[in-house]
Nucleic acid binder design. Structure first.
Length: 152
DNA sequence: GCCAACGTTGGC
DNA sequence: GCCAACGTTGGC
């Protein structure tokens, strides 16, 4: 099983929204590196849910990959902000997954705490200038993060 | 709101 | 294929 980290602005879609909806299609990713990670996901993989552009930002919970290799429907929708005229149904450019809610952590693990506990080499999120919205998390690092939930 | 860092676009 | 210009992300 692989571990991942998914960024979302809570104003747009939050862990509470996912909890309410139970599952969601992780659509709208329009970055090739992020797309490649989405394509590498397997059913059962766990993903940390990260709130970005908040004060503070941080990991707020866990979700799980339920379904993989879904052609992102928003690329075909001319009214969607994610519409991509270069995509066709025969030859989709953007792929995604469906994720399900697993848990919301009692306390957010803030970016500051993550910086204190991990090095940028261990955790891609901490790399300078990192803007990826989908990224892998090494198994050992993921275990340590999970062990931190609920800790002060 | 600012701005550094990065990705993408498009002219050449 | 290069690279300047532009748009976006996201922490602060």
């Amino acid at each position: 099983m692989n571990h991942w980290l998914l960024k979302s602005e809570p104003d747009v879609f939050s862990i509470d929204d996912l909890k309410k909806q139970k599952t969601t299609l992780w659509d709208g990713v329009r970055n090739y590196q992020a797309r490649n990670f989405l394509r590498a996901m397997q059913v059962g993989d766990l993903a940390f849910f990260y709130h970005s552009s908040t004060e503070p930002p941080g990991i707020v919970g866990l979700c799980q990959v339920l379904e993989t290799h879904i052609a992102d429907p928003s690329q075909f929708d001319p009214r969607s902000p994610y519409h991509d005229p270069r995509s066709s149904k025969d030859n989709p450019r953007w792929w995604t997954v469906r994720v399900g809610f697993v848990e919301k952590f009692e306390r957010m693990i803030t970016l500051g705490v993550l910086r204190a506990k991990f090095s940028p080499d261990e955790l891609l999120l901490l790399r300078r200038g990192n803007r990826l919205s989908v990224m892998p998390v090494a198994a050992e690092v993921a275990e340590r993060i999970i062990a931190m939930k609920g800790c002060r």
